[in-house]
């Protein structure tokens, strides 16, 4: 464990908590893409199948449980509890264009052709593009609530910090995983446009508005 990975996990956890609280407190999922949350639930499910078979540490196991539980709780709130506030007309990204190519790629490019490894690889590839429906929805509605932009910032920063974690691990642990690194780079690049708007607008107290 190193400071970058720890801060990354904290940032990821806070993003998940921010979103949960936003929906629960405001009893509304307006502006939130249910499709992205569905993809995140798939990402955590396919990545943490070894949750009960491969104990790494209490921290690792407890964080995985929290991630999986909160992603399902978020999906449940969007599609069930507060579905009346779900803005389906703006959440129109074709997720099959994300799921199918990443599934095929995980069969072609992986570290080991075993079910668990392929599912892990699929979850890494899918996570790198899972935010697209949400970013697409924000660009379609032309703006996002400030709390939603904080959620997106925390979520984007987490994988950016993981990039530094991989540099650290390469330097000091002679360790690197090209699949995770390349997917993490793609994931971070997708946020660049949003990061720019967040830093130039939201941090100056303005509302986040994307050019529609």
């Amino acid at each position: 464990m190193n400071i970058f990975r720890f801060l990354g996990d904290i940032s990821h956890l806070s993003a998940i908590i921010i979103l949960l609280l936003k929906i629960w407190k405001s009893r509304s999922c307006a502006g939130i893409s249910g499709k992205s949350q569905l993809l995140f639930a798939i990402v955590f499910t396919t990545r943490y199948l070894d949750l009960f078979t491969n104990f790494i540490s209490f921290y690792n196991t407890s964080m995985k449980v929290v991630y999986v539980a909160s992603s399902y709780a978020t999906v449940w709130m969007i599609y069930s509890k507060f579905k009346a506030t779900y803005d389906g007309n703006h959440d129109t990204f074709r997720v099959e264009f994300l799921i199918v190519p990443t599934a095929i790629l995980s069969f072609l490019v992986n570290h080991d052709f075993t079910p668990l490894e392929i599912l892990w690889t699929f979850s890494i590839y899918l996570e790198s593009v899972a935010i697209l429906p949400q970013l697409f929805m924000v660009s379609k509605t032309g703006e996002a609530e400030t709390i939603t932009s904080h959620y997106l910032f925390a979520l984007g920063i987490y994988r950016t910090l993981y990039l530094f974690n991989w540099i650290w691990r390469y330097q000091f642990e002679e360790f690197f995983d090209l699949i995770a690194i390349v997917a993490g780079l793609v994931q971070t690049v997708l946020y660049c446009d949003f990061f720019y708007l967040y830093i130039t607008k939201v941090l100056k107290g303005k509302k986040l508005s994307l050019p529609a």
């Binding site: 990975r5 690792n60 892990w120 002679e174 995770a180």
Partner: peptide, 10 residues
């Protein structure tokens, strides 16, 4: 060298 995948990471 490429190590095994980042399985100890979240």
């Amino acid at each position: 060298e490429t190590n095994t995948a980042a399985k100890d990471e979240l």
